[in-house]
Write a protein that binds this DNA or RNA. Structure first.
Length: 672
DNA sequence: GTAAGCCGTATTTTT
DNA sequence: TACGGCTTAC
């Protein structure tokens, strides 16, 4: 507590009503949340099991849990909920699924499952493959986040396209229900619906969660806000922490205006601003403040720090995009040698993922080790999707998406035409594929051999599911992957034996994770079932940890969006050009403010030095264009910037400069 | 089942 | 331009 500043302490101690903490970048908001949890337990006599802290990402939740565990002895923290919105939704749904009409083993469709289902519906009902499935999926997700029910969506649709989306939405929901499945959005939406329809259930959860803390509040969507509001309705005992200037996810449903709404919905709301920044130099903050001052604000806020002015902000113009990447690679090497730093102290931020490509090539050429955030997630890997398919089918045989995923992996000689006929039959009878397999009516539609294969598969699954009840689940799972000779299949379908080996390791890692989850609270009252372990797993949780262990000495490459919440001693932001940052579409949609916040987020990642680059000329969609430097550069105070490469008319001037830098580099290296 | 060729598209992404 | 997704042809 003594390590907190006055404002932070005030935020921790204020418990007499609803509280909004406007926490600027780097102002120690996580410390406030974790200290507050400790304070509530130790000083206010609130039991940990009556406190919930909600975040958006597993990473944030994990960090928070770790930090709380350092402040609170384990037995005092017992029952504390630190979870993502989705995990909290899952917890509630697991307990209340019956009221909503779901069976215990319900599946969670990830966005790929959902997409496949939406595609099927669109083809079947509209024969319209021209329509963009991704768009429809996003539209449905938006409707769900806005809490618009299918019937309402149908009635308010004001053109054919919207009507089509609404109809697909309705059918999609019906299918999910039939599959005993929910999607990510449902994890929030269904809980809100449940609370509305069953006040007694709401009351039960209000009693469970007596103090609520919400992180990154500006990122909540309508459904999430509704959930928060309902949970805190009676007690108004909550703290939300957010920063309207860091709202960069409006495009996927986040409603930063929820900050204002909070003020309206809770007139007694107290607002505390955290403006002291512990991360960056004063100059970096001055530039950040200057840029964001161009946005309208409900709550004025200005960051400051005691870390000294620091270096000037560098703006580097290069000839073209090639030189831009080259320059960044060289600057990193140069700086690292001169200042004797580590590669991991550097980050390069960009607007769009494609911008990393050239940069990667240049970094490789200079043998600069790097890591890119935002590659394929663990769950996007094919072997994991397969394995999850089996697990899902085991606990929920109605899960058609899982059935289709694994029925012929490895090969069981069950091909597309068999599945199509089976699907037709199942649709007619309104039953799942799994059930359809056992129906006698199939004999008329499918050849003997196909039916035999299908029934073999079904019987094998049934036996395995029974074994899970009788024997130790983990050994059954291990046996299952051996049974189907999955490893052999991987070897046949991977590029190299090494890759196959790695993929099999991933599968075993998945099984291990389940084992760990099952064993963690074995014998306890709320012992985890196989069902809940598997559904937890789907919301990631422990799996992404292993990916991040690759924390060796590497330069970080990431999008501005992905950089939120992180910090680096030395930051590069590339592509400061009109049409890139701010992005072209945002200019067209007149949505400069969110782009400006993105710029703000980028600037405030830097602790010591900040370098921004742009190319005078760039190839775009095949043709060369003269670029215009980003308007955001004009918004930065000139006296804090140093420009390089600007106004040099000779296009070779930069080349010369590059050579010069390289030469000095070689000298330095020779000296070592 | 695979490889070549054609077409359309071109932000940000978590759960 | 460049890539991915999809169709087509073997």
């Amino acid at each position: 507590m003594s390590r907190l500043n006055a404002r932070q302490r005030e935020a921790v101690h204020y418990i007499s009503g609803p509280l909004l903490v406007l926490a600027g970048a780097g102002s120690g908001k996580t410390s406030v949340i974790t200290s507050k949890i400790t304070y509530l337990v130790e000083q206010c006599g609130i039991k940990a099991k009556h406190i919930a802290a909600v975040t958006f990402t597993n990473k944030a939740a994990r960090e928070m849990r770790e930090r709380v565990s350092k402040l609170l002895p384990a037995h005092d923290a017992k029952g504390l909920i630190v979870a993502t919105f989705h995990n909290l939704g899952l917890t509630i749904l697991r307990e209340e699924h019956k009221i909503l009409g779901y069976k215990a083993g319900f599946s969670i469709f990830d966005s790929e499952d959902a997409k496949a289902l939406i595609r099927d519906i669109m083809i079947r009902d509209f024969g319209d493959e021209g329509e963009e499935v991704n768009q429809v999926q996003a539209a449905i997700s938006n409707l769900k986040n806005d809490m618009c029910e299918p019937d309402r969506a149908i009635s308010v649709a004001c053109n054919d396209h919207e009507l089509m989306i609404a109809q697909v939405y309705k059918t999609y929901n019906q299918y999910l229900k039939a599959y005993n499945a929910v999607d990510f959005d449902d994890l929030i939406l269904l809980i809100v619906a449940l609370f509305r329809q069953h006040p007694e259930v709401l009351e039960k959860w209000q009693n469970r969660v007596r103090y609520l803390l919400v992180d990154e509040y500006q990122d909540t969507n309508i459904a999430q806000y509704e959930l928060v509001k309902m949970l805190v309705e009676t007690r108004s005992a909550f703290t939300v922490v957010g920063d309207d200037d860091q709202s960069i996810y409006a495009w996927r449903g986040a409603r930063p205006e929820n900050l204002v709404k909070l003020n309206e919905d809770f007139p007694s709301l107290k607002v505390i601003k955290l403006e002291q920044n512990y991360r960056s130099t004063s100059r970096i903050l001055k530039v950040a403040n200057a840029v964001i001052a161009n946005n309208p604000h409900v709550f004025e806020k200005a960051l400051w720090s005691e870390l000294g002015m620091g270096d000037e902000i560098r703006i580097i113009q290069t000839r073209n995009e090639d030189a831009e990447s080259e320059r960044i690679a060289v600057e990193i090497l140069d700086h690292k040698l001169k200042k004797n730093t580590h590669f991991r102290d550097y980050a390069v931020l960009y607007r769009g993922n494609h911008q990393s490509r050239l940069l990667e090539m240049k970094l490789q050429a200079h043998q600069v080790p790097y890591r890119i955030s935002g590659g394929t997630s663990f769950f996007a890997k094919n072997e994991i999707k397969d394995a999850m398919g089996y697990l899902r089918l085991l606990i929920n045989p109605e899960d058609d998406a899982a059935f289709l995923r694994v029925v012929n992996v490895p090969r069981r000689e069950i091909g597309p035409s068999t599945l199509e006929k089976l699907g037709e039959y199942a649709t007619e009878r309104d039953i799942s594929l799994y059930r359809a397999v056992d129906e006698l009516g199939l004999e008329q539609r499918l050849p003997e051999k196909a039916i035999q294969k299908l029934r073999q598969f079904r019987q094998w699954l049934e036996r395995t599911a029974e074994d899970c009840q009788r024997k130790e689940a983990i050994s059954v799972l291990k046996q299952m992957f051996t049974d189907i000779e999955y490893e052999d299949w991987l070897y046949q379908n991977s590029n190299t034996p090494k890759q196959a080996e790695r993929r099999m390791d991933n599968v075993w890692y998945l099984v291990d994770s389940i084992q760990r989850m099952l064993e963690r609270d074995k014998g306890l009252a709320d012992e985890m079932t196989l069902e809940s372990a598997i559904s937890r797993l789907l919301l990631m949780d422990m799996l992404e940890q292993q990916q991040e262990e690759d924390d060796t000495d590497k330069v970080h490459l990431l999008t501005l969006h992905a950089s939120k919440g992180l910090e680096f001693p030395h930051c590069f932001i590339m592509g400061l050009e009109e049409e890139i940052l701010p992005h072209r579409n945002s200019i067209e949609e007149n949505n400069i403010e969110e782009e400006r916040r993105l710029m703000y987020v980028g600037i405030t990642r830097a602790k010591k030095t900040l370098t921004m680059t742009y190319a005078a000329q760039r190839k775009q969609y095949g043709e060369k264009i003269e670029t215009i430097p980003s308007r955001f550069l004009d918004e930065m105070p000139e006296e804090d910037l140093v420009w390089f490469g600007k106004g040099e008319k000779d296009p070779d001037a930069n080349k010369a400069k590059g050579r010069e830098t390289l030469a000095s580099l070689r000298n330095l290296m020779d000296g070592l």
